[in-house]
Structure formats: structure tokens, C-alpha cells
């Protein structure tokens, strides 16, 4: 019984192994550098798996690109320079937040346009009903005046 419990307890620890192996550790100089690396790699998309960030992905290319980002950070490159480097090779696809430019205007402002159209429809409806309503509300008010 105790042996079995022990075995179950050990099995429960197995998922930890996956976490330990998921991402190979990089030799960061300090905590700030690690935080910067983590932030940058969650803003970039893995080209292979496409719905994972570079930080999360275990694809070989994600591993290589993390190494590349790390080396560029060590070489003193800024976040913008590192992003530009990747965009030059893998296009805007790698950016989770695409740049605002004419061909992405629809993407950025489309929802606002839809919201504005919806707002206009509501406004028109409200006004139309207000125009139709006075007779009935006036009548209602009349009865209320009797109180």
C-alpha cells in the first residue's frame, strides 16, 4: 500500500520533467536580461508552428531563433533591431502585433469602422422611435397627471 502510494506520488511528479525539458536554458547575465528576453520572445511568432510564440514553441526553428535573439541581445542590439532582423527574413508574419501601415489599416481600424456603423444604426433607430413615440408617451403622461 505504502509502495503504491509512493509510486503514485512519483508519477504525479512526472509532468515536472516536461517543464524542465521544454525550453533549453540560456546563460543569462542577470534577471533583467532574462525578463527582456522572455518579453521579446512572447511578442514573436514561431514561423513553423504558427500559433505559438517563440517563447513557447519547441520546434527546431524556434530553438534556433531564440538562440539568435539571445546572441543579438548579448551583442547589444535593441529590441527594434532584433525584430527588424527577423522581419527581414521571415516577413511581418513573425510579429504578433503587425505594424500600422496602409495594407494593415483594415486590420487595425476595421473593428472601429464596424463599431461606428453599429452606433449609427442604433442612433437612427432611437431617433426614429423617439419621433414615433411622443403620441403614446403624451397619452401616458396624461393618465399619470390624474394621479
Amino acid at each position: 500500500m505504502i509502495r503504491r502510494l509512493g509510486l503514485i506520488a512519483l508519477l504525479c511528479l512526472l509532468p515536472l520533467l516536461a517543464i524542465a525539458q521544454a525550453i533549453q536554458p540560456l546563460p543569462f547575465r542577470d534577471r533583467a536580461e532574462e525578463v527582456r528576453f522572455q518579453k521579446l520572445s512572447t511578442e514573436l511568432r514561431c514561423p513553423m508552428c504558427q500559433n505559438e510564440t517563440l517563447a513557447d514553441s519547441n520546434a527546431p526553428i524556434a530553438h534556433d531563433l531564440r538562440r539568435q535573439i539571445f546572441e543579438m541581445m548579448q551583442a547589444g542590439k535593441s529590441d527594434a533591431e532584433i525584430k527588424a532582423y527577423l522581419v527581414d527574413r521571415y516577413s511581418d508574419f513573425v510579429l504578433y502585433k503587425p505594424p500600422v501601415e496602409p495594407k494593415t489599416w483594415l486590420l487595425w481600424f476595421g473593428p472601429l469602422v464596424v463599431l461606428a456603423i453599429g452606433g449609427m444604426v442604433v442612433a437612427v433607430q432611437v431617433r426614429r422611435r423617439a419621433r414615433q413615440a411622443p403620441a403614446t408617451t403624451a397619452a401616458a403622461n396624461d393618465t399619470e397627471d390624474d394621479w
Partner: peptide, 13 residues
């Protein structure tokens, strides 16, 4: 071997 030239070519697989 280590995929560095591949990155320059934009290879991802």
C-alpha cells in the same frame, strides 16, 4: 549543421 545560414535564407523547415 546548426541552421544559422538557414535563418539568413528565411528557412523554417
Amino acid at each position: 549543421r546548426d541552421g544559422r545560414a538557414g535563418i539568413d535564407f528565411g528557412v523554417y523547415g
